[in-house]
Design a protein around this nucleic acid. Structure first.
Length: 241
DNA sequence: AAATACTCCAACCGCCGGGTA
DNA sequence: CTACCCGGCGGTTGGAGTATT
């Protein structure tokens, strides 16, 4: 499972993360957040590229990541959304709290792919659409998504968290025979998602207030107690999720 | 017990889009 | 307008762990 440790062309370490590296990354992110992944390893004392740090944090160290077996509901959701959206793993994972796109992708390829292909012969895309439609009805009131989408893809309940994915899924299914992201974006750009369940992405003022954050991240750390209490707030409000 | 085949998943790679200077 | 940087995404791979022969 683990990859052999080595160095990339820039002299950065590759391969499996050690517990010590995890500790450093976790401690740094919990204290300072992640405002520039490229710079982060330098100040966190890690010989890793920023990308590797980001991946490690997002897929493994992040709080609230759910480990262990998938529930029947989760499996059904993955199968259903994969049928609708294709390999939009991040979109699918966003509907599974605590699961990462990488994890969902792996689980699909190792466990669900075969089952799904068997089910395809017995259930139509229309059934999958209807199923999602019901889940939206439950939270956002009745709206016939399948019918609406076929008539006007933009006329969807904007507050429905499924809408973005549904639009993209139908864009790939109906609007273009190619899989280029350009064709998808040209469709989704017309929709205002500002009112959907987007996570907060702005930098908290605690960082902005520190003008030398990146140049002196540790030096300015004079008020650890205060930082830690704010850290808990950030986590409780899912700023880091 | 040893060898081989298979499974699973952490991690890497390359590409793309958004933001900005 | 262009070039560059960065974060994010999806496809792929390496190899440890497990099952089978």
């Amino acid at each position: 499972m683990a990859r052999t440790p080595g160095l990339d062309k820039n002299g950065m370490k590759k391969g499996t993360w050690t517990p010590e590296e995890d500790k450093k990354l976790r401690a740094y992110v919990r204290k300072y957040g992640f405002w520039n992944w490229r710079q982060l390893p330098k100040y966190a004392g890690l010989s890793r590229c920023g990308k590797s740090c980001r991946l490690r944090w997002m897929n493994y160290l992040r709080p609230a990541i759910k480990r262990g077996n998938y529930t029947k509901e989760e499996e059904d959701t993955i199968i259903r959304l994969q049928g609708l959206l294709g390999n939009k793993w991040s979109a699918i994972a966003s509907k599974l709290p605590g699961r990462t796109d990488n994890e969902v992708k792996n689980y699909w390829h190792t466990n669900l792919k075969k089952r799904s292909s068997q089910n395809i012969s017995s259930s139509s895309p229309q059934e999958a659409i209807t199923s999602v439609n019901h889940s939206c009805d439950h939270e956002f009131g009745p709206k016939n998504i399948s019918e609406t989408t076929q008539n006007n893809i933009l006329d969807l309940p904007i507050n429905c968290p499924m809408t973005h994915q549904i639009v993209e899924g139908f864009a790939s299914l109906h609007l273009s025979s190619s899989s280029s992201k350009t064709s998808l974006s040209s469709c989704t750009e017309a929709v205002d998602f500002s009112n959907t369940e987007c996570e907060a992405s702005g930098s908290p003022s605690i960082v902005e207030s520190n003008g030398n954050f990146w140049t002196e991240p540790f030096i300015t750390d004079n008020n650890i107690e205060s930082w830690l209490s704010q850290d808990e707030w950030l986590f409780s409000h899912e700023i880091f999720y």
